[in-house]
Amino acid sequence: MNLSLSSVEWHAGSWKFSADASFCPGVHLVAGRVGSGKTTLALLSSRLIRPDTGTIGYDGIRAQTLSFQYPEYHITGSTLREEAESYGVDPTAACARAGIAGREDQDPFRLSRGELKMFQISCILMRTWDLLILDEPFSALDCRAKLAVCRAIDEIQSGIVLVITHEQHILPRTDYLWEMRSGVLTGLGTLPEALFAWESAPGPVRMLRDRGILPANLRRDDMLEAACRMHEYG
């Protein structure tokens, strides 16, 4: 199974996105500054927009989805029940998983934005995907919800997962790190070595890196273990 972007270019005015990359099964974390092209990568990879040049290849990918950055863009039903059913998942289970049990007949827009985001992500994570693209899955979530989403990503056994995010503190176990740099997709490699090259690294990674300490991975437990080492060594 493989997602490939071969000599892909996409233009918006004078701004150019370019990528030459291959995504194998595993968790790929894609970071980058505001406006660097992260969402464009999500849209191209999910084939919602077509490249101006180059090709996007799906090898062995049958079931794929994109979780939009804005949860409100997903809403098609007038109740959470209808919304869950539109994903083909059980409404009661989806609401329970999102921490809003018993609210199946509520209007989705009566939820707080964080609750709506968690509900929408929960619906997506209740199904199995060959290619799962999560555009800013952690924005608007509180830390407990972020940890729950990370655990769900950690438990995915197969398929390609792209986590596109600038989350600063709570991240999933990551197999490969990528960075969008002014429209150019750049592969940084595997962890922890890739952390050295991460230009838009979150504050906690910078804090550890500046002291010569690298976490084994990006999970909260890895970060806390590294913070303990920082405390020990001063």
């Binding site: 830390c143 407990r144 940890l147 906690p204 550890l208 970060m223 806390l224 913070a227 920082m230 405390h231």
Partner: peptide, 13 residues
């Protein structure tokens, strides 16, 4: 003891 505790304080800084 919660995930709300600031990470920057975990290392004693």
């Amino acid at each position: 003891d919660t995930c709300c505790f600031p990470f920057s304080w975990r290392g004693g800084t």
